Amino acid sequence: MTITIIKNFKVIFNLFLLLFMFLFSSCAPQSRKANLSDNYYQCKLFEDNSNRVYFSENQNDVSNIELSKFYDSENDFDIMIYSHLEGSKNYNLKRIYKTSKGNWMEITIVNGNKNESNLIFNEVEIIDELDNVQEKAFFQYCGMCFDCRYYTFLIKKGKSIFKYYSNGEVFEGIDKHEKEKLYNYINIYDFFIKK
């Protein structure tokens, strides 16, 4: 009798373990890039507040120092693209700005290592989009995700700041009508992410 109970317990335990493993693996983060088309979306877009953002609690961190320069500068245009891997010190920062002398500068910081250089491109390619930057803020929510990369995209034109925060690939996985509303900002992002 006890042998039958032990066998039944083992069968029940193994079934429970299999069910638990299946449920756990189905909650694991999956690639959000896969099979995203204009008709399929899994992220939601929400209007957000225009509050100042911070990249870390340490104000002396090189990324926060660069962020302060972004907010405090009086450049004609200032673009910042920041991403970090949740739960790690792994981050990338790219800041592109136009000086008062009309020169474009690029600063990249990867995990604390900073590089600065002149950026040369034909401004005519993107000036219309930059001139149309408005004070707006959005949050792109792509569901619960662990060990994902989070993005902050900021554009400053004079005193107006556009802010976009995402817990998924920037501008990916959102409804095509929402993408149409953000067309100007998507063009700016695509243009400078490739520079």
Rank of each mutant, 00 (worst) to 15 (best):
S26A: 10
S26H: 05
S26Y: 11
S26T: 14
C27A: 10
C27N: 12
C27G: 07
A28K: 07
A28G: 03
A28M: 12
A28L: 13
A28R: 05
P29N: 04
Q30E: 09
Q30N: 10
S31E: 13
S31N: 15
S31D: 15
R32G: 15
R32M: 11
R32K: 14
K33A: 12
K33H: 12
K33Y: 14
A34N: 14
A34Y: 13
A34D: 12
A34H: 13
A34E: 14
N35D: 15
L36K: 11
L36R: 14
L36T: 11
L36S: 12
L36H: 09
S37Y: 10
D38W: 05
N39T: 08
N39K: 09
Y40H: 10
Y40P: 03
Y40C: 05
Y40G: 05
Y40I: 11
Y41F: 15
Y41G: 03
Y41D: 06
Q42V: 08
Q42I: 09
Q42R: 06
C43P: 05
K44T: 12
K44E: 13
K44W: 04
L45E: 07
L45M: 08
L45K: 02
F46R: 09
F46Q: 11
F46C: 06
F46S: 15
F46W: 05
E47R: 07
E47Q: 13
D48Y: 11
D48Q: 09
D48A: 11
N49L: 07
N49I: 08
N49V: 06
N49R: 05
N49F: 06
S50W: 02
S50G: 15
S50T: 09
S50E: 10
N51M: 05
N51I: 01
N51S: 13
R52H: 05
R52G: 02
V53S: 01
V53F: 00
Y54H: 07
Y54F: 13
Y54K: 03
Y54L: 04
F55Y: 07
F55N: 05
F55V: 01
E57F: 00
E57G: 06
Q59D: 11
Q59G: 01
Q59S: 15
N60R: 07
N60I: 02
N60F: 05
